[in-house]
Simulated scan of single mutants.
Amino acid sequence: MKAASLPETPVFHTTGLTKTYHQGEVEVHALRGVDLDLYPGELVVMLGASGSGKSTLLNILGGLDVPTSGEVRYLDTDLARATDKQLTRYRRDYVGFVFQFYNLIPSLTARENVVAVTEIARNPMEPDAALELVGLANRADHFPAQLSGGEQQRVAIARAIAKQPNVLLCDEPTGALDSATGILVLAALEKANRETGTTTVIITHNASIAQMADRVITLSDGQISGEHRNPTRQDPRTLSW
């Protein structure tokens, strides 16, 4: 599986990105000057221990949080200075999210959970097509309680990709799963990236996942401490956890 080459124009560009939280009189520096470019269509794995700043960075890229200082741009949009209304529109129209916990609506079937997103999307794919992409076409009429954890996470992926976002941001998507189930979820993410061309970022503390990426970025203490490109992307189904 050949790694994607990087075009010249990034989807995301950050310069000197910082984020400081105040817990009483204590300042917590979650990000300490992050310079980063992410490119169209690439699959990036961000590695780092708990507290390294990777979730904070992902939340800022996704418009769920804003930096304390520095620049963060999505194409021509300055996310650091966007209004709440602009960030809401950005999240709705351009970003798909996959979190560690699936956040499915229990009273809706798998298909209906996907429809809940496609009804408000600008250019959605058919819900059944999204479920087929993640290997769940035969489970479309099942409720979350009738699905395994891995199946629920794949429904969450289908829901995220069904609105055909430009960017798919995944925060520890296998964190609540065993290794065999996690590999199925990663395979679904890799397939979605390959077939839709959506820029995909997966953050994790599991270094073995890195081999499936075009590029691997390591965070430590709120800074980028390492970066490398894989000459080829490894099939997630062959990963050894």
Rank of each mutant, 00 (worst) to 15 (best):
A110N: 02
I60W: 07
S5D: 08
L79A: 05
L177E: 03
D235Q: 03
P124T: 11
T232I: 15
L219H: 07
A121Q: 02
R233C: 04
A156C: 06
G33N: 00
P144Y: 10
I60E: 01
A49K: 06
T174S: 10
I105K: 04
V34A: 10
Q152N: 12
L133E: 06
R154P: 13
L108G: 07
G222L: 05
S225K: 07
A140I: 05
L87F: 09
L38S: 00
M46R: 02
R139A: 08
V98I: 14
V11P: 14
V114G: 04
E119K: 14
L57P: 08
R91Y: 13
Q100R: 09
V66Q: 03
M125F: 14
R32N: 09
E132T: 11
A49G: 01
H22F: 07
V114S: 11
S69K: 10
L133M: 13
S55D: 10
P127K: 12
E112H: 13
L6S: 02
G16Q: 11
G53Q: 11
D171V: 09
R89Q: 12
P40Q: 01
N113E: 14
M1A: 15
D221C: 08
E42A: 03
L239I: 14
L136M: 03
E227C: 09
T218M: 15
V11I: 15
Q86C: 08
V115C: 08
G226K: 08
H13M: 12
P40S: 02
R122L: 13
S50H: 02
L31T: 05
L47V: 08
I202R: 06
A30P: 00
R159Y: 15
R122G: 07
N138V: 09
Q153W: 06
L136C: 02
M46D: 00
M125A: 13
I120P: 04
A192L: 08
A145H: 13
F143D: 13
Y39G: 05
H22K: 15
L75P: 04
D141R: 05
V114K: 13
P40N: 00
A207L: 13
A210G: 14
C170M: 00
V98T: 10
D84W: 03
L239R: 09
R73W: 15
A187Q: 02
T174H: 06
S208F: 09
P231I: 04
G33I: 07
S148L: 05
E126Q: 11
L64C: 05
A82C: 12
A30W: 09
E195V: 12
E25H: 05
I224N: 05
V28N: 06
A116P: 04
A30F: 01
S220V: 07
D93N: 02
E190S: 07
P236Q: 04
P106G: 06
L61Q: 02
N113H: 13
Y90N: 02
P7A: 14
I183D: 04
T199I: 03
Y74T: 09
A80L: 01
A110R: 11
A213Q: 02
V95L: 07
A4P: 05
P165R: 10
E42F: 02
T204K: 00
D235P: 01
T181D: 01
Q100Y: 01
R111D: 09
L6Y: 02
K191H: 11
R194L: 12
L57D: 04
D141P: 06
V95G: 07
A82P: 13
A158D: 11
I217R: 11
V155A: 12
A158P: 08
N113L: 10
L239F: 06
S208C: 03
V66I: 06
T198W: 02
T232H: 14
V167I: 15
